[in-house]
Write a protein that binds this DNA or RNA. Sequence first.
DNA 1: CTGTACATGTAATACGTTACATGATTCA
DNA 2: TGAATCATGTAACGTATTACATGTACAG
Lengths: 183, 183
Amino acid sequence: MSMLEATLIGMSLRHGILGLLSIRPGSGYDLLNWFQETLANVWPATQSQLYGDLNKLASDGLIEVTSTGARGRKEYALTSAGREELHHWLVDVEPNRVRRNDMLLRVFFFSLLSRDEARALLERERAVFAEAGDGMRELEKSVDWTQGPLADNGRIALEWGLRYTKMQQEWADWALEQLDTER
Amino acid sequence: MSMLEATLIGMSLRHGILGLLSIRPGSGYDLLNWFQETLANVWPATQSQLYGDLNKLASDGLIEVTSTGARGRKEYALTSAGREELHHWLVDVEPNRVRRNDMLLRVFFFSLLSRDEARALLERERAVFAEAGDGMRELEKSVDWTQGPLADNGRIALEWGLRYTKMQQEWADWALEQLDTER
DNA sequence: CTGTACATGTAATACGTTACATGATTCA
DNA sequence: TGAATCATGTAACGTATTACATGTACAG
């Protein structure tokens, strides 16, 4: 059991950082771009939080500054403790499955709405996820899925997104039918 | 446009409270139970946060204490401002669609794992969602879906859960196949 | 020489969890 | 009378967002 276990449970932004740094070293600025390019859909990161967590990871000894460059650039790399912690998190830490969904919360109070208002919400839901699905199919075409370790696995995550957006649309269609048949 | 709009965007626990109080008045203790019975899967609430938010809603004039009982019990009811805010949130506020998923985050770093380690994660994922789906199908049988305004809409939310858990299992199966065919 | 990109940080605020803290009422 | 339930609250901490703040290097 890692000595650092207690301090790192559930802090997934930091594990995302460790994961990206396991592929290649980089600065906070690099990491921000990599997050936006690859992990944005599963774990969005803001600039502010990223820099703070980099300093925490460094002071915990999980990453270290390996070189400094122009404009105060600090290049970070994983330490061996960081690599251990990353592996530990991947295989031993139960994923957090708590989900909050404020569309579904709204659904519970549909009785307060007119049929047209409820229909508008569901149609918007269907449209938003149809568009998200289109975006993912475009991404699927535009990325070279054979290049690099992230791409290979990214395809598996993208498949989840494709299935999720499809499910959302089908559910919204089903719910729209309920609106007509019930009541 | 509501004067309170700025203060209530994104605070969905409070809207969950408003929604439950729209059905019938109740105490913090009542609300805690109602959350656990009905909304737990879409918006979990802790006792601590609930009592704090009740006081905030009351000081914002969205709910009010309508009677006090034994053991310091305070029964809350919606005010007309609260009812307005609830309707406004339902129809005018764009749902927050930001999702974080630390299983998918792990997927991006599957290259760091052996095939057996990756397989174990995906099999666990499939098992967890199979069990969750079973629980939902039991719930479906045990609840009288014709009784009360929450049940009617709860069935629509449950349908989402049934489809979501099914999708997760199918995705995990697909990903397990990829593990065998690729690499 | 000017704008864009590179580069890092802090402060204020909000939301959420866990643990701590206290006490009244009811029922067996 | 003791245990379970009813009932409300605070404190400490962690995570996330937005806005603020500052400055360097490079390319056209």
